[in-house]
């Protein structure tokens, strides 16, 4: 376990802190106000750009798999008792639709430790006093020119990055907007992923798993909004930048997706 921690630190935390310190120095040099907050945002954007090819291939594969999903469930019914046959038929279907089965889940799995490492590094940094953070950064950076000579300012437009909206509820009640924005962004993202269903398709039996899946479009954004209420503002800055970039990338690939049909559909429902 210790070696894992050491590897994680050497391969992920240290490079992240090094780049963060580099960006921070650059912003200081340019006299950008609130350099720490903007460093967090910029580093997230840099990370998203680095991950861009991985996410892109994943989104593309995911979109293609959604289009064949009805065929897949038909195959599943047809070859219920023959998993071997089902497998070969599935591969045949993928081939027909030009889906690259080699894309696999690897690009997804690779992203997880990176997302986690960013989260971990940011939560350490914003939870420390500026003095402790300076010692931490100077201990972690690989490039010694990036060492901090002065502790940084944890405020971002007057909002302390290390405190959560819940802790600031008395003094800054308007920060309640942060969990709201986080929830809305998450909702947009998950709604965009759902392609409009074929109206001719028979409604499938609502077992618990499918019901949960439909509910999760609402449940998870709400949950993540609750988290952001409890977590330091600096982390919401990271997560929302991350989500906005994800939404843009999704938009670039397939437009608004399920989001486009959502308002019109609910209007029709209300009319009835």
């Amino acid at each position: 376990m210790e070696t894992v921690g050491f590897l994680f630190d050497a391969a992920l935390t240290k490079p992240i802190v090094t780049v963060l310190a580099g960006i921070y120095h650059g912003l200081l040099l340019l006299h950008v106000p609130y350099p720490l907050g903007f460093s967090l945002i910029l580093l997230t954007v840099v990370m998203r750009i680095v991950l861009y090819p991985l996410t892109h291939s994943q989104l593309k594969a995911s979109k293609q798999m959604q289009t064949v999903a009805p065929h897949l469930s038909r195959l599943k019914d047809k070859h219920k008792n023959d998993s071997k046959k089902l497998q070969t038929e599935t591969m045949k279907l993928y081939k027909e639709h030009g889906i690259n089965p080699a894309a696999g889940c690897l690009p997804l799995i690779i992203q997880l430790p990176i997302i986690w490492a960013l989260y971990d590094a940011f939560q350490k940094i914003v939870n420390m006093s500026p003095d402790a953070a300076m010692r931490f950064v100077n201990n972690e950076v690989y490039i010694s020119t990036f060492k901090l000579t002065m502790p940084w300012d944890l405020s971002f437009f007057g909002i302390p990055l290390g405190l959560s909206p819940s802790a600031l509820l008395q003094t800054m009640p308007y920060l309640l907007l942060i969990p709201v924005i986080t929830g809305v962004l998450q909702f947009i993202q998950s709604k965009m992923m759902i392609l409009p269903k074929d109206p001719n398709e028979k409604k499938k039996s609502d077992d618990f798993a499918t019901a949960f899946q439909t509910q999760s479009t609402y449940l998870f954004p709400f949950m993540i909004a609750l988290f952001s209420y409890q977590l330091p503002v600096g982390l919401s800055l990271y997560w929302n930048t991350f989500t906005i970039f994800g939404i843009l990338q999704q938009y670039q690939l397939q437009g608004w997706g399920g989001m486009k049909f959502w308002p019109s559909k609910s209007l029709i429902k209300n009319k009835k």
Partner: peptide, 24 residues
């Protein structure tokens, strides 16, 4: 299958992760 995996999809912003049918 029903909680962790959809949550991961939500976090990563993808609608489907597994290419197998039935999924892994």
């Amino acid at each position: 299958k029903i909680i962790v995996s959809p949550l991961l999809h939500q976090l990563l912003g993808v609608s489907r992760g597994c290419r197998f049918n039935p999924s892994c």
